[in-house]
């Protein structure tokens, strides 16, 4: 086993330029083991043998993808969720008609942790919401990660990244080694494959859009186009949460920063 781990670390280093330290062995195991059957190998040693035989084949690309996809965290950065609780919900409750559901969009939701973190926050603020319903759309360009988001199943490693254990106990079922988000929490969530550069015309409008750590990958003209497209799908006075390293400055006048909440913006009108 340790020989296989060393070989896999070497393989990823040589083919993707990424150094996985020995302390990441659990990650290698948790990412690769569930896929061994679909690759038709029984063990990690067997996988190493196949990779040695075909170091540039499609199996090699799949192994690299499995080991290098960024981990997504629960309640990532915490701030946007605090803003949701202490500023955004009170504001929306004060002016949104009681019979209209609050519409939320997580625009690059990857494997779903952000969507479910929003859902947990909304559930925990039931008292503030005073019976208001809400719906959450989670979208990503990548269908395989959406399938994971939809399944709501996460590894032991994943449920320990940013998720307080009290919430694990409250919102997850124990599948024995993996954990699944309970049906109640998934009730008003929908997942759709969407490309931010080519959104359907009739989408929205939303009261809150989370679009975090996406714009950093785009050139300024694309950032402008995406922000214009998000603005067109945000209700007047609605909110936009960007990543900590992202800004609307110089890209759009449609959103203004929410004072005291870095990364959170309000649609101007």
């Amino acid at each position: 086993m340790s020989g296989a781990m060393e070989a896999l670390r070497g393989f990823v280093r040589d083919n993707a330029g990424i150094n996985l330290g020995a302390d990441k062995d659990y990650l290698v195991v948790s990412r690769l083991k569930p896929q061994l059957t679909s690759w038709n190998v029984a063990t990690l040693d067997g996988l190493v043998d196949r990779l040695r035989a075909q170091p540039k084949g499609s199996l090699a690309s799949q192994v690299i993808a499995a080991l290098t996809i960024n981990e997504t965290l629960w309640f990532r950065d915490q701030k946007p969720f605090e803003a949701l609780k202490s500023v955004i919900i009170p504001d929306l409750v004060s002016r949104v008609p009681a019979d209209r559901p609050i519409a939320i969009w997580s625009a690059a939701c990857s494997s779903g942790q952000e969507v479910y973190s929003i859902a947990m926050t909304m559930r925990e603020e039931e008292q503030q919401l005073r019976g208001r319903r809400f719906g959450i759309l989670g979208s990503d360009i990548c269908e395989p990660v959406l399938a994971r988001a939809r399944s709501g199943i996460y590894s032991q490693f994943e449920v320990q990244r940013g998720l307080p254990v009290q919430r694990l106990v409250k919102y997850f079922e124990d599948l024995g080694g993996e954990w699944r988000v309970r049906t109640e929490l998934r009730a008003n969530i929908e997942f759709r494959a969407l490309n931010l550069l080519d959104l359907p015309q009739n989408m929205g409008p939303f009261d809150i859009i989370f679009c975090r750590n996406v714009l950093i990958y785009f050139e300024p003209p694309i950032k402008k186009a995406v922000l214009a497209s998000l603005a067109a799908r945000t209700r007047p006075g609605g909110y936009l949460a960007l990543g900590g390293a992202e800004t609307t400055l110089g890209l759009t006048a449609a959103f203004t920063p929410l004072p005291g909440w870095a990364g959170v913006y309000r649609k101007t009108a």
Partner: peptide
């Protein structure tokens, strides 16, 4: 939950 690493311990 064991096994853990520094990232998990930091989050906790």
């Amino acid at each position: 939950m064991k096994p853990f690493d520094s990232a998990i311990l930091e989050d906790k």
